[in-house]
């Protein structure tokens, strides 16, 4: 694993592809986060809301995306993490998580973040500022 300090602008962290999204993933996230909005777990409720089926919590995807940085907490921490929820995530979707170094500002590393589904659509996008200590 490359040290964050050695990463050059334009390079990316090693991407992660998640297992297909399962209902159990979303039930677990509902329980762990306390977000029990039923459009994330119960088909009938999703359909009532005009959706073709249950969708993942945006915060589930945002939480997953941050794990690109988990191996680097010995070097620093996430100072800023901003995400826009650009598309919906459905059951069986396969998400790939990416972080590309965009800029170095002193000890702050600015990354462009995205989670992309199996069709190449960006479902969440944003940025991370990782502060080296």
């Amino acid at each position: 694993m490359k040290q964050l300090e050695e990463l050059q602008v334009g390079e990316s962290l090693e991407e992660i592809t998640l297992a297909p999204v399962s209902r159990l993933d979303l039930i677990k996230y509902a329980g762990a986060s306390g977000d029990f909005n039923p459009i994330h777990t119960i088909d009938e409720e999703a359909e009532k809301a005009g959706l073709p089926g249950v969708i993942a919590h945006g915060m589930w995807t945002m939480g997953n995306l941050a794990k690109l940085f988990t191996p680097y907490y010995d070097a620093g921490f996430i100072q800023e993490y901003k995400i826009r929820f650009a598309g919906m995530v459905f059951l069986d979707d396969v998400l790939t998580l990416r972080a590309e170094l965009e800029e170095k500002k002193g000890t702050a590393l600015h990354f462009r973040m995205k989670a992309v589904n199996q069709d190449g659509n960006e479902v969440v996008k944003g940025r991370v500022e990782f502060l080296l200590m």
Partner: peptide
Amino acid sequence: PDKGLIHGEQTYHYTRP
């Protein structure tokens, strides 16, 4: 309401973990 809201954006800013 507890239903029908759309989450558009989310930002965290930390001074430490």
